[in-house]
Write a protein that binds this DNA or RNA. Structure first.
Lengths: 335, 335
DNA sequence: ATAGATTAGTTAAACGATTTACTAATAGGA
DNA sequence: TCCTATTAGTAAATCGTTTAACTAATCTAT
């Protein structure tokens, strides 16, 4: 790789000092039109772009934010990231995205990397692992905000999430109202706030109907279509005789439905289904699937705004929780 | 934000020079066990992490690569990114991901940003916009490899893509063999190699059967479910009387199918469908949809390996093209 | 005419690491 | 004993910017 062009080169060619070049670039001092123009033309000629490692080193600030998520190919997370990106662009920020794929050691490495790359702040959807290491950053007032998932052990970190307790409660209530008493709950990531809160909601709804909570109805599996169909198989194998299913992500929902059909069971007559998160195929699958959703776009945009607040004011604090809503289609038995 | 801990602080506390600390961290000189241990313990005590802006500035290298893609919520691209990430992790690299969302000005800004953040190289799936700006980087031997899409105007950039010509040809041939003569082609991004190559394949297949190419059968739309259903509506409005459809991405395929059903047309009897890219719901939609696919995982992993080669050898060059394969289900009329 | 303001530009000290060239002390070999 | 190697560590230059403090020239108002 050839030597990069530096500000010094530009300065030399334009017969000015490096300081002047810097001032032209950053509009940080009044420079005569004449010098400004020659400098600009030299910059253009060499396609010069300032080295931002040097810039960051000096300035301790970059218009760049990091986004660290733990699971990717999930339509909810994808949509949320998309919204964060959009909002960041609007506000003149660049975004660096990293997917930790539920690997908490990698998450820590990543946060360190981004931190030392001098992003101005980080939006984090944490893994289920130990995130005590975050404490170090909160002590330093490095701006971090949690999105989607949170960890209540970690204090003083703003967060914006969906109201997953309410979500679990409402979805279960909906099925209970249809007369179901044995409701399977299929999820993927244990020990994360989203799952925990939904399970709390699920239990409280059962209690409302004076129904006992049965451990066997809770099935954990991989967040893939295969994971979903395996989970259904387990419910069958355990002879749970469940008549309804609440599935926590899109791929698993698809897998669960395909398995139910394979078993020659009819949705919603034999087994009713509610899935979390709206996805493109929800209304084209047979039968169209009823979803309970969270406002992914609002969550994403808000998260970025909260980060911005935190960047501008180290004492900023807020916990924002957005409510779920239901998209009723045929799989829950309403029609 | 409080002052960060620097190597100097560590050195002072451990009663050694900064040079020694650096050597301990990087294993770049033999240091006695005693000093090494005290240094290490001080580092641990303060949770010290070297500032990589400074490091990059000095070293001109970081174990970090950038990935710049132009469209996200596409299952093919998602899967490819996933593979790149995995391979990068295996090789001890960190990855910084940016989605340009088909905005070519933003793409240029992003590449500049990543370049100046001193990533060691970039994997790029370019937008359809003008990418002459890349020339500057190739001249400097900055490692860039194109993945998925390429631009033949830009010389000397290695690439790994699917064989989209073959893909267009095979899918079309498959439909032609079933006796279809009027085949709609629904796509989303104009002026990108993937689309162009598939259209070439489509035309050549028609020619093979001595059929004329009809401009009206080509419909462009948004890469969403709505875009797909709007495209079908257009084909109907234009009274094209097509009997088969080849759709270029997952969301559009889902939308197209739902529109066809809405119109009370039967798949595959009235209209046969082949969609590009395998996705979770392909085999659960009614009828299960026949897909022609590209090996997303291999493409991703290979792309990273090619980037590594390019990083280690500025003169490295290769164009890798992976073949498509078909997943035959019911929507094409084979059963 | 002259003090004070304004304008246009420069000098040089940071920022936080890495790394080359150096020193000092000890060990080994003849 | 003297010379050379080896070991353990350090001083200082360097990467490419930004920015506070400075100078010099021109302008303004009295």
């Amino acid at each position: 790789m050839k030597k990069e062009i530096t500000m010094k080169d530009i300065a030399k060619e334009a017969n000015v000092s490096v300081a002047t070049v810097s001032h032209v670039i950053n509009n940080t001092k009044h420079i005569s039109d004449e010098t400004r123009n020659t400098v600009l033309s030299v910059i253009k000629k060499y396609n010069y772009v300032p080295n931002s490692a040097a810039k960051s080193l000096r300035q301790q600030a970059t218009k760049t934010a990091g986004v660290v998520v733990s699971s990717f190919p999930d339509s909810f997370v994808t949509e949320m990231i998309f919204a964060i990106e959009e909002r960041a662009k609007e506000m003149g920020y660049n975004l660096l995205l990293v997917n930790t794929n539920e690997d908490s050691a990698y998450e820590e490495k990543t946060i360190n990397l981004l931190h030392s790359k001098m992003v101005d702040g980080i939006i984090l959807s944490p893994t289920s692992g130990d995130i005590q290491y975050l404490q170090k950053y909160t002590k330093d007032d490095f701006p971090i905000v949690m999105v989607n998932r949170y960890d209540s052990q970690i204090e003083h970190i703003p967060r914006v999430t969906g109201d997953n307790y309410q979500l679990g409660y409402e979805a279960t209530m909906h099925l209970l109202k249809h007369g179901h008493k044995k409701i399977g709950f299929i999820y993927s990531y244990p020990n994360v706030s989203t799952t925990n809160d939904r399970i709390r909601g699920y239990k409280d709804a059962l209690a409302q109907y004076q129904l006992p909570f049965t451990e066997d109805y809770l099935i954990q599996g991989y967040a893939t279509a295969n994971g979903g169909s395996a989970a259904v198989q387990q419910l069958i194998d355990k002879e749970t005789e469940i008549t309804a299913l609440f599935v926590q992500n899109d791929s698993m929902t698809i897998g669960a439905i395909s398995k139910i059909k394979e078993l020659n069971l009819v949705i919603p007559d034999d087994i009713a289904v509610i899935g979390f998160g709206d996805f493109a195929s929800s209304h084209i699958i047979e039968p169209p699937v009823t979803n309970i959703v969270l406002p992914a776009e609002t969550i994403g945009r808000t998260a970025f705004d909260v980060l911005l607040n935190k960047i501008n004011n180290p004492y900023y604090m807020s916990h924002i929780e957005l409510p779920p809503s239901m998209l009723i289609r045929k799989s829950c038995g309403c029609f």
